[in-house]
């Protein structure tokens, strides 16, 4: 895949993660998760600008109008979705007291998003997702991994978890206990 295509894809993946995180930050009134949304928005802005420039440059070179227009249109829509996620996270960050109705609405969803640090020496430390069969054993799917300042989106069964990673998982609420056990030292 070409560089700009990869960037567009990263934008899409990032915006989806942001929205997931934003709704869960709101549900748990979690500042920490809301901050992640803000951080990811910076990445979105960078990618968006880059795609715009690259698309126009490419148009100058090749004269391919359709390609430039499509890339810019889609990137623009994704940027606005990410922006909306930021608006949601902003409610938490500005310490606006959550209306009880809001929490009830969010609760009606049947899956939740969880943020967990993987502790050194825990069951998951040093194991690949396939090795531990995380999804089928716990019902939780790893959506993204944060390692230092790096994000790994959509990890597969060969992705190895390391102590110090922060994992974002999605699944039924009754899986929380199992996840706690698996990530604790």
């Amino acid at each position: 895949m070409k560089e700009t295509e990869k960037k567009l894809l990263e934008m899409k993946n990032t915006s989806e993660l942001m929205l997931d995180l934003a709704y869960s930050a709101l549900l748990y009134y979690n500042h920490d998760i809301a901050e992640e949304v803000v951080e990811l928005e910076d990445r979105i802005d960078y990618l968006y600008e880059d795609i715009q420039k690259a698309s126009l440059n490419k148009f100058k070179e090749t004269g391919n109008f359709d390609r430039a227009l499509i890339f810019m249109k889609v990137a623009d829509a994704i940027e606005r979705i990410a922006d909306a996620a930021l608006d949601i996270a902003d409610v938490v960050l500005r310490d606006i007291e959550i209306h009880p109705v809001l929490r009830q609405s969010l609760k009606e969803s049947d899956t939740i998003m969880l943020k967990k640090p993987v502790h050194k020496g825990s069951l998951l430390d040093g194991k690949s997702l396939g090795q531990v069969n995380l999804a089928s054993e716990t019902g939780m799917w790893v959506v993204a991994i944060k390692r230092g300042n790096e994000w790994i989106y959509g990890p597969d069964e060969n992705t190895v978890l390391m102590g110090g990673d922060i994992i974002f998982t999605r699944g039924p609420e009754d899986s929380i206990d199992t996840m706690n056990k698996w990530t604790s030292p």
């Binding site: 929205l19 979705i81 608006d87 949601i88 409610v91 606006i96 959550i98």
Partner: peptide, 18 residues
């Protein structure tokens, strides 16, 4: 409290526009 709720609703609406 309602302003927070409206902010979330308006974000959802913004997503559908996009």
């Amino acid at each position: 409290r309602l302003s927070g709720l409206l902010q979330v609703a308006s974000a959802a609406e913004k997503i559908s526009d996009a």
